[in-house]
Amino acid sequence: MLVTLWLLATIVFLLVSVLPGNVGRKVLGPFAPEAEVQRYNQAIGTDRPLLQQYFTSIRRAFTLDFGKSYGTREDVRDMVLDALGRSGKLALLAFVLTIPISIVAGIIAARRQDKITDRVIVNAGLASSSIPEFVTASVLLSIFAVQLGWGKAFANPPDNAGPIEQLQYLVLPATAMAIAYFGYIARMTRAGVITALHADYTRTATMKGLSKRQVMVRHVLRNALAPTITVISVQIGYLFGGIIGVEKVFNYAGLGSLMLGAVGAHDVPVLQGAVMLVGMIYMVSTLLADLLIAYLNPRIRLGATK
């Protein structure tokens, strides 16, 4: 874990400090006098020896201290964590919306394998995960928020909004993401259930005379959900990619909007902080997924899945 974190920080350091060359010139633009560029580089430390910069950047990764934003001069950690909280809320709502539907759809498809229902679900899933989130989001926005007046075009809820009111603001962007997730989850569940249905333990359980329902819940689902959980955890990085587009369309002040703003403003510390943070979340979520799988299916020991 720590080694991975160190490597992650190194990769990000290479991307922001070594490859682009003169950071001050990039940020201040070609019109800035050379003296000002030098002052800038001095202030952010890019004039120091690379090795020293490298150690600073590693230390920052481990202490979650990414310095101050070039633009607003606010603390990057605060900005990134605030934004992450909002993105997390959005992603959570999307999962809540999508998980029951897509798991049920996956199970139905598996049980009706190769029948019409299965085909419909499989292809709907394929389509839903093939359409980029930003496209779905734009369509939802213009139809619901603009034309019909349901839901909000600006998704940031007011400060004192209660849970129901917040839901009203978040439901459209969350739906856009839920639609994209549906495909991933339904298809993985289907594959997992099919494998489990054909597995020996299922046959044994059926022969032991357990009811279909008992077999399904106690044996099939337990085993079938493992790959689904793995997929969800491995997809975290992609999910954050999709969230950027959705947040842009709905002007939601999450990590995606923060990143995009930082891209426009060449605000490297913010980008660095955001990428590091998402990387860490990925690491934590894969770990949690491993633990969850081990809990669901005690026969799999940690590490044996790899």
Partner: peptide, 17 residues
């Protein structure tokens, strides 16, 4: 650790720098 890097985010970072 590469797997932990979100593709779109790193893409944006790289294009920026």
């Amino acid at each position: 650790s590469f797997l932990a890097l979100p593709v779109v985010l790193v893409g944006l970072l790289a294009v920026t720098t």
